[in-house]
Design a protein around this nucleic acid. Structure first.
Length: 700
DNA sequence: CATGTTCAGCGGTAT
DNA sequence: ACCGCTGAACATGTG
């Protein structure tokens, strides 16, 4: 290998990317990052930069950038760490499944059951501060695994939604064609079957099947007790989500139990035993039942809406399993279903903790048939089942301007957005509104930047539907990147999304213009104690939905280098991300059209650093208030519509998860550690206060 | 808003 | 290998 110092600046650009990274003269925060971070490499990199400076080579003419990109957290003060994690340990330890399964078979009587609870209590108290870090380590990855598994599920789900939408569109087209054909030849009764097969209406179930086939189900083995990574209060947005994380293995049944087959593996129980139940149609009014529940067993239902019994229930299947739980003191995971607009399915399921099956009895139900009833009591020592967890969002989300506490500005957008964005401040005294910027809804272009507008459009009319003919769909790999459902959702993160633009024949309602329709959710800017301003939504945001664009002044990156300490600069690093140079995650799917674009940019000798950036320092939209998080709920997606130049790609933020109301919106700023240089030329560090379990502890 | 249809993995049983 | 249980999700129908 040629040693670094022997390289001339001219051949730098031709070197392979990994090697050239330390050679970059321009200190772009993300790009300059050295991926493998041995200190030796770092030292070499710095030495290289110094050399470039003094030698006056061509590359060195480009001055160092002295600002910190989007590092507005400098106002932040000291961090308090630890408290939260300790709490988490407590939560996790209570009701730990292993503790339960260690118990001998068939403890007799209640005394032993009580003893079990006590054992757990002692364990909980034993956890000390020093060991806490070790204990929670696996929990961190487990909760992340849960999140990732659900994201994977959503991806499959949206994929099947799209297939379904395609099928419906085709069916519709066929039907129209058939009608037209009939009109054309009236007498002819050529029997084109009007009825189109109604299959596969359940994309959620398709997604489950897919994940089973791919071995993507988390915790495929059933187990008693808690599931690591799923805390009390966890919200599921469909039954299917519970299946794919191994929390409740049926998408239909209320009672999940371990059958005889488990007797071979875990001999300490008499099977079947129930492990998880779903309380559906539980009305929010009977709060008294929160800790105490009377659950009706399964069987004998007529399986239709009127919910009437038509046969006697028998002590078998789930009922038998619950009975065995009484006798063997097996705790049961309890999930409650709630009607809620805060979900794409209209329902939310909350994990409300472990319950003990106290006793059971048979009685004659309303219709005169035998039903089994089970009294469940919530185990002690678990996180409180607060009103908020039962009512989650209700009551907390303001319904009108008058209800907003700490209001400091009614609408920071000055009426530009379709809905007002209020700002609140319950932190400062006196409460101050956000200042020092001008709200501007869309991107402004700097005087010395010429934005191309040369995208050739598709020839579709009204709405693009056929991905095999729509030119814009073809650019995305012969599929639209969005589904229409829920107002448009991105199926998965892409290198770049090609949307329809001004030269397309379709109208604004086209699914391939999903990110062009402005704000869809009632957002709020609120003041935090440690992180400055932050953003949250009053509405539920489904995973894959567009949240907002990052706007600012579209400027040449090199013009920014004279600016000191501008913390609101977003480098348009789409190209670099695709090439795998940047700090952001590499995405999937390479499409022929995109390959073409990349080749073209290579011919132009396009850089390994972003040429353009969005400066939201003085002018910008809501996105400039969104904080960084190491485990964020939004992701960055580059979008092209008016042109096909990756250097000027629009920057959109999409929901990475289903986001409940009032949860802070965050994305990963994408810094590589040690990639930002201060005005003194030294590596600058910035602590991260995001509070995620997997926090890197430093922003850069 | 009520009613109806379809969905597919599982636990158990028979082979 | 087969069969029946199960109630969620969603489409369709009705006033």
């Amino acid at each position: 290998m040629v040693s670094m110092s022997e390289r001339s600046s001219e051949n730098v650009a031709n070197e392979n990317l990994t090697e050239t990274k330390p050679m970059q003269r321009r200190t772009s925060a993300r790009i300059q990052a050295v991926k493998e971070k041995s200190s030796r490499q770092k030292a070499e990199a710095i030495a290289e930069r110094d050399e470039g400076k003094t030698s006056g080579s061509a590359a060195a003419e480009k001055p160092k950038r002295r600002y910190n990109k989007r590092s507005r957290k400098e106002e932040s003060v000291a961090v308090v760490e630890g408290n939260n994690t300790v709490l988490e340990v407590k939560n996790e330890t209570v009701g730990d499944g292993d503790v339960i399964s260690e118990q001998p078979k068939k403890p007799k009587g209640n005394a032993k059951c009580e003893a079990m609870m006590k054992i757990k209590g002692e364990r909980e108290n034993k956890i000390d501060f020093e060991n806490a870090a070790d204990v929670i380590k696996p929990e961190k990855t487990d909760s992340l695994k849960v999140k990732e598994t659900i994201r994977l599920f959503t991806k499959h789900y949206l994929h099947f939604v799209q297939e379904e939408e395609k099928r419906c569109a085709k069916a519709e087209a066929d039907r129209k064609a058939a009608k037209a054909a009939k009109k054309a030849s009236k007498s002819n009764k050529s029997a084109l079957p009007e009825e189109i097969k109604n299959t596969a209406k359940r994309p959620d179930l398709k997604a489950i099947t897919k994940m089973i086939q791919n071995n993507e189900i988390l915790n495929p083995e059933k187990r008693v007790g808690t599931i690591s990574g799923i805390e009390v209060g966890h919200q599921f947005y469909s039954r299917a989500e519970m299946v794919v994380v191994g929390f409740h293995s049926h998408w239909l049944n209320g009672i999940d139990f371990m059958g005889q087959s488990y007797a071979k593996v875990h001999k300490n129980y008499e099977y079947p035993i129930a492990i998880a139940i779903v309380l559906s149609g539980m009305y929010e009014d009977d709060l008294d039942n929160a800790e105490d529940v009377v659950y009706t067993g399964q069987g004998g239902h007529n399986l239709v809406g009127d919910k009437r019994q038509i046969r006697d229930q028998k002590l078998e299947r789930g009922n038998l399993a619950l009975k065995n739980c009484v006798e063997q003191c097996v705790p049961v995971r309890v999930v409650r279903g709630h009607e809620s607009s805060s979900s794409y399915t209209g329902k939310i399921y909350t994990y409300d903790g472990l319950y003990k099956v106290v006793n059971y009895w048979a009685e004659k139900g309303i219709s005169g048939f035998t039903v089994y009833k089970f009294r469940l009591r919530r185990l002690e020592g678990q996180p409180l089942l607060t009103t908020n967890q039962v009512y989650f969002t209700c009551g907390r989300v303001p319904q009108s301007v008058a209800e907003i506490r700490g209001l400091v500005c009614e609408d920071i957008t000055t009426g530009q957005e379709d809905m007002p964005i209020p700002a609140t401040n319950l932190v400062d005294d006196p409460p101050v509104p956000p200042t020092g910027f001008t709200y501007f809804k869309s991107v402004k272009v700097a005087k010395n930047v010429k934005l191309p507008m040369d995208a050739t459009g598709c020839k579709c009319k009204d709405k693009c539907v056929d991905p095999t003919t729509c030119e814009c769909a073809l650019r995305n790999g012969s599929d639209f990147p969005y589904v229409s459902r829920d107002g448009g959702r991105l199926i998965e993160a892409k290198d770049v999304v090609f949307e329809c633009g001004p030269n397309c024949g379709c109208g604004p309602g086209c699914v391939n213009r999903t990110s062009q329709r402005g704000l869809r959710y009632r957002l709020e800017v609120f003041r935090t104690a440690k992180k400055g301003w932050a953003v949250r939504s009053w509405d539920f945001i489904p995973s894959g939905a567009p949240v907002c664009e990052y706007t600012g002044i579209l400027s040449r990156a090199e013009d920014m280098e004279t600016v000191l300490e501008n913390n609101y600069i977003f480098e348009i690093d789409c190209l670099q991300t695709i090439k795998g140079i940047g700090g952001r995650e590499k995405r999937s799917t390479n499409v022929a059209f995109l390959e073409n674009l990349l080749d073209k940019s290579d011919e132009q000798g396009s850089e390994n650093v972003p040429e353009y950036c969005l400066d939201a320092g003085s002018t910008g939209n809501i996105a400039r208030f969104i904080n960084h998080c190491c485990e964020p709920n939004l992701f960055v997606q580059c979008v092209l519509s008016t042109h096909h130049d990756l250097k000027f790609a629009r920057v959109m933020l999409f929901a990475a998860d289903n986001i409940p109301p009032m949860q802070e919106l965050t994305y990963d700023y994408g810094y590589a550690l040690d990639s930002v240089l201060g005005s003194d030329g030294k590596i600058k560090q910035m602590p991260c206060y995001c509070g995620a379990t997997g926090c890197r502890k430093r922003l850069f």
